[in-house]
Amino acid sequence: MLRSETGEDPARLRDALAGLNRYQSAPRPPRREDAPVVARVGRAMLRDYGGSGLPAVFVPSLINPPHVLDLAEDNSLLRWLAARNVRPLLVDWGTPGPDERALDIAGHVDQLLLPLLRAVQEPVALVGYCLGGTMAIAAAAHHPVRSLALIATPWQFTGFPISARDNIAGLWQQVAPTAEALGVLPMEALQASFWRLDPARTIRKFEDFGRLPTGDPRIDSFIALEDWANDGPPLTLAAGRELLADLFGANTTGRGAWQVGGNAIDPASVTCPVLNIISLTDRIVPAATAPGIGQSLALGLGHVGMIVGSRARQALWEPLQHWLSQPRER
């Protein structure tokens, strides 16, 4: 990627390598303690961020850890909401075990997410981010919820550029033998798939990082976010195959062929109020992939920037808080 993106420009190559070295060698502060667990189903947990308002269950993607929603002391969507009439409950998917190689994405909804929702024992709002939004649609089709908020949620995978779909489908062919042998799809392979969605930006961000002056507060923010992006447990073998081959490769959700609990999932069958938050500048999950349901909120922020960027509070946090704090009947 470095060779292809920097070409014949040795200054860009030098800056990108300097940024990578700065990132790798930077000291890391101790991680904050996780929020307490209030429900557990197998390896999956529901973490309670407090607050006295209505419960809202946040469903993160299976890819990368869930703490992007609680990234730092001064940059935490969940803790901010907890202080503003919302009780955030975060799904922590845990780490898959060796006996779960056959558990696909639909199985995560049926066997882990839906039992966690039932464990709350009261109607909840549901909030899904990225692939977690895809899963939240399926959950809302099976379980009564007060409302559903989708953040950068892919459904129509034909909305990805054809080059990205071909690259990711090709990636599965490359990694399938290793994944079959391990029983999981390692995070390294998943990260490579995201690099392929926007390789120019991947190199450019390290170039820019390498040029930041010592002591710039953006250094710590970059490291925290990049650590999150490069961390996380593997996917089960079946979930990895379903993501790369079936969703990206065959658009099973968009074609109406994706089944959870034996039933095909149609977003139009969700009867609760829906807020569909999309980004017009998202390179990871383009707006064209979003399901065509609900009340739309279009943002000019990137896939991660809408959650943790400098403009995230005004653009996304505040409208989401307003949405979640409205009392609704189940």
Score class of each variant (00 low, 15 high):
residue 4 S to K: 06
residue 4 S to I: 09
residue 6 T to I: 08
residue 14 R to Q: 12
residue 28 R to M: 12
residue 32 R to C: 00
residue 34 D to G: 14
residue 37 V to I: 15
residue 41 V to A: 11
residue 44 A to L: 04
residue 45 M to C: 12
residue 50 G to K: 11
residue 50 G to W: 03
residue 53 G to D: 03
residue 82 A to D: 06
residue 85 N to Q: 09
residue 91 V to K: 00
residue 100 E to M: 01
residue 102 A to R: 15
residue 103 L to F: 09
residue 108 H to I: 05
residue 108 H to S: 09
residue 110 D to E: 14
residue 112 L to W: 01
residue 114 L to R: 11
residue 115 P to N: 08
residue 124 V to P: 05
residue 129 Y to P: 05
residue 130 C to W: 03
residue 138 A to D: 12
residue 145 V to A: 10
residue 151 I to L: 15
residue 156 Q to T: 13
residue 161 P to V: 04
residue 163 S to T: 05
residue 164 A to I: 15
residue 165 R to C: 12
residue 166 D to R: 15
residue 172 W to Q: 03
residue 178 T to C: 09
residue 179 A to S: 06
residue 195 W to H: 14
residue 197 L to C: 09
residue 198 D to W: 01
residue 200 A to Q: 12
residue 209 F to S: 02
residue 209 F to C: 08
residue 212 L to P: 11
residue 213 P to Q: 07
residue 214 T to E: 15
residue 214 T to Q: 15
residue 220 D to M: 02
residue 223 I to W: 05
residue 223 I to C: 00
residue 230 N to L: 15
residue 234 P to H: 00
residue 241 R to C: 03
residue 247 L to N: 05
residue 247 L to F: 03
residue 250 A to D: 08
residue 253 T to I: 05
residue 259 Q to V: 06
residue 269 S to L: 09
residue 270 V to E: 14
residue 281 T to M: 06
residue 288 A to M: 09
residue 288 A to P: 05
residue 290 A to M: 01
residue 291 P to C: 04
residue 291 P to E: 08
residue 296 S to A: 14
residue 298 A to S: 15
residue 301 L to V: 06
residue 302 G to C: 09
residue 302 G to P: 08
residue 303 H to C: 07
residue 303 H to M: 11
residue 306 M to T: 07
residue 312 A to L: 02
residue 314 Q to G: 13
residue 315 A to M: 08
residue 318 E to N: 12
residue 319 P to W: 14
